[in-house]
């Protein structure tokens, strides 16, 4: 009879062991992140590009810009819309710019705030034209990434950027460690475009295909205008600040910005303009008489070397599309 309490005690001990050995409730132990993670993973970025490409291909077939806002914004939306008009006006002779929906590589920002802007470098288009740099931007958390702009890559090397899994740091607009602060680049470049070597900033900017083309076109237009007694003027204006500045491996930065080029042709007094460009007419909605103002939207990608290394700011890619016209 003495054993009963002992057995009971033993059972109790065993039971306690069984139950008391249970683990304490686990607690959430999130990782601490010293640096914000990349906004998107490579897979996600590819998905975004594909989504954009899907919208583009759909809209391109119909030449209907109605569906573009879903995945296009800013300059890209305006440019694409204009291209549809152009394509329509020219009867398909000038189709929209091909924009491959395949991502060769990307520059993804490290950020946890909005807007978020990333660069995607596409494969070479089927027409063997230059690669495109797609600028994709998410303006707000509940927005999707949208194509903000695109640019044709110039021949030459593209700076090395961080791996996708790491992401590239987003630099402030006034980052002092660069040869030129991002916020000043577009205005200075505009000045260089307008004034050439006479610009105060001319020494800071290396020559590039875009600049050369602008200057050549301007000279040609001026010559043509002069023949008819007309005048041709062209101005370059930075639109807002740089949309994004992303660090490169060498400590430099990729700066993306937008310029607005306005070219104005004014007929000589008493004279009239003869416009053979259906695109402009379509954009303006009327044939010009005395004045034709064409507004181009320019998307530019610069490489800005770090201040420590020095060097010149180089335009890596650019695109200029006539997006507006006015006649009078």
């Amino acid at each position: 009879m003495r054993r009963r309490p002992q057995i009971a005690a033993l059972a109790a001990v065993v039971a306690l062991l069984m139950t008391a050995c249970s683990n304490p409730l686990p607690t959430a132990m999130p990782e601490a992140e010293a640096v914000a993670p990349p906004a998107l993973s490579a897979v996600q970025s590819q998905a975004v590009v594909a989504a954009v490409g899907s919208v583009l291909s759909t809209s391109d077939k119909a030449l209907d810009p109605a569906g573009l806002p879903a995945r296009l914004t800013g300059p890209a939306l305006a440019m694409r819309t204009a291209e549809y008009i152009r394509s329509t006006a020219t009867g398909g002779a000038k189709p929209p710019t091909p924009l491959p929906a395949n991502e060769a590589t990307a520059v993804i920002p490290q950020t946890d705030v909005w807007p978020r802007t990333m660069l995607v470098i596409t494969d070479q288009p089927d027409d063997l034209s230059a690669r495109r740099v797609l600028v994709l931007q998410q303006a707000a958390p509940r927005d999707q990434y949208k194509l903000w702009g695109w640019a044709r890559m110039f021949p030459g090397e593209f700076p090395t950027t961080a791996a996708l899994t790491t992401g590239s740091a987003v630099l402030a607009a006034d980052d002092p460690d660069l040869v030129v602060p991002p916020s000043a680049i577009l205005s200075q470049y505009a000045d260089v475009l307008a004034n050439g070597a006479a610009s105060a900033s001319a020494a800071k900017y290396a020559g590039d295909t875009f600049r050369t083309a602008i200057e050549a076109n301007r000279t040609q237009q001026q010559a043509l205008a002069a023949e008819g007694g007309a005048t041709f003027t062209e101005t370059y204006t930075a639109t807002d600040g740089p949309v994004v500045s992303l660090a490169t491996q060498e400590g430099g930065a990729l700066v993306v910005g937008q310029l607005s080029t306005t070219s104005t042709i004014t007929a000589a007094q008493g004279g009239t303009l003869t416009n053979s460009d259906p695109f402009s007419a379509a954009l303006a909605g009327a044939a010009p008489t005395t004045t034709l103002v064409r507004t181009y939207t320019d998307v530019l990608v610069f490489y800005v070397p770090p201040a420590s290394a020095g060097g010149q700011v180089v335009a890596l890619a650019a695109e200029q599309i006539l997006t507006a016209a006015a006649v009078s």
Partner: peptide
């Protein structure tokens, strides 16, 4: 009230 479905951000 929004619909988070389809956002590019979600893993």
């Amino acid at each position: 009230v929004g619909d988070p479905a389809g956002s590019d951000m979600w893993t």
